[in-house]
């Protein structure tokens, strides 16, 4: 039995959060459950010795993405929940559930038959300092880092442009009429 007790607790917490997030009726509740799941994953990372990744997970997912999702829910007036049956046993929904189950079955099968997973013994946690991560980012992975930075900037701009209000669709205010006159 190689799994520690804490690992089990955290795994259960993560999975329970994920199941809750995907099954609850009210969107806000879903988002909160998602936070629990993300936080559980972050704790799992810490448990596995990846402190930096765990903290980044906590910061980005719990701190930013979850909040972003809550905002999106509020802005799309989804806070009231999905009135018409969100889980109506429609053919499409059943097909989706079956597909997901099949994927799980295949993945479990892959893990069971994998030699790597079976051989992987419990080794001592590698001692990773921030210093090493910093060096790795600045030397070996500096190019991906730059690319990521560029991509983040582009995504930022893209998100702003997408979320901008289209002025032309609002003839109510005067500017649109003025533009029309000028044209």
């Amino acid at each position: 039995m190689g799994m520690t007790f804490s690992f089990l607790i955290l795994a259960i917490m993560t999975l329970a959060g994920g199941v809750a997030a995907m099954t609850m009726r009210r969107l806000v509740h879903c988002a909160l459950a998602l936070v629990v799941s993300f936080a559980g994953l972050a704790a799992l990372y810490l448990n596995l010795g990846a402190e930096f990744a765990g903290l980044a997970q906590l910061l980005v997912y719990v701190g930013a993405i979850a909040i972003l999702i809550v905002f999106a829910i509020l802005l799309t007036r989804g806070g009231e929940g999905e009135p018409e049956g969100s889980f109506s046993p429609s053919p499409a929904g059943i097909a989706g559930a079956v597909a997901a189950l099949a994927v799980f079955a295949v993945l479990t099968w892959a893990v069971e038959t994998s030699s790597v997973a079976r051989a992987g013994a419990a080794v001592a946690a590698p001692q990773t300092t921030m210093r090493e991560i910093g060096f790795a980012l600045m030397q070996r992975y500096v190019l991906p880092l730059e690319v990521i930075a560029l991509m983040l900037t582009a995504a930022l701009i893209g998100a702003v442009i997408l979320a901008l209000r289209e002025k032309r669709n609002e003839p109510a205010d005067g500017t649109a009429q003025k533009q029309g006159l000028r044209a």
């Binding site: 499409a92 097909a95 989706g96 597909a99 099949a102």
Partner: peptide
Amino acid sequence: YLRVIAVALV
């Protein structure tokens, strides 16, 4: 589309 991808993956 997503379902098709999942089935393809399986």
